[in-house]
Amino acid sequence: MTGMGWTGRLLLIGVPFLWLALFFLLPLLIVVKISLAQSTIGIPPYTPLLVDHDGGRELHATLANFALITNDDLYLRAYLGSLGNAAMATALCLLIGYPVAYAIARSQGVRRHLLLFLVMLPFWTSFLIRVYAWIAILEPNGLLNQCLIALGLTAAPLPLLNNEFSVELGLVYSYLPFMILPLYGSLSVLDPSLIEAAADLGARPLQGFLGVTLPLTLPGIAAGSLLVLIPALGEFVIPDLLGGPDTLMIGKVLWDEFFNNRDWPVAAAVAVVLVAALAVPLLAAQRFLERGHAA
């Protein structure tokens, strides 16, 4: 053993482990616990898991909340709605983000720094305010409709707000930087001579891209896609502010259960299912990235 003793190693692994256990695992367990309880009027608004009974203690757990979300197809539709919107947003972010990241990675010096700065600039303003700003742009009397009417492209205002379009726009707008940055990361370390070598060996630009650039930036694509997909799946603010009456996303359902219905156990059950569903793509991506590292 060199350098560090057992205590040092234990500390090194132990501190982050403790952090995760305290601030991630413990809250998750509390949520799981609530999801197994029943709704009640009181503080807290759910029944305790362990009930004193004839001097002993009895476990009062129920899977009724999970039964409810599987029986009522509102939840399934909300999950699928979220998945559809998030998947679409991920695909659009990838489609828009890849060329942007490519252009940044190919630019030099000050220009590169400036472009990177511009990508990160939106983070300087509150996320909530930026989403609100889109309402001002998209509403019937908003900036965009006024421009379109002034240009004579449309006679009456277009319905741009409170529909699927505005939700998708909001998702892509908000999460695009999370796609661009990891893509930029993997593109900027790509040796330009590899692309030249492909061209030298007779590959046309598209073939060179598909055969060399794309496979070598797969880790960046995977990382960026996860960074967009996962938060977009649970997104609440965007569908709430920009969505319409038929926008059904699981983050909004969860919010409604919690704050409007005050049904904490059902809300907790919705959250548990969401976390379980998110774990699948996360683990798959991690597998993929680890394999990429080994190769």
Binding site: D191, S193, L194, E196, A197, A199, D200, L201, V212
Partner: peptide, 20 residues
């Protein structure tokens, strides 16, 4: 002519082998 259309091949100084 673009590089891909020339009857010339190059051995790069860094070798530029495709790592994947």
């Amino acid at each position: 002519l673009p590089a891909y259309a020339r009857p010339v091949n190059m051995m790069f100084q860094s070798y530029a082998l495709f790592p994947h």
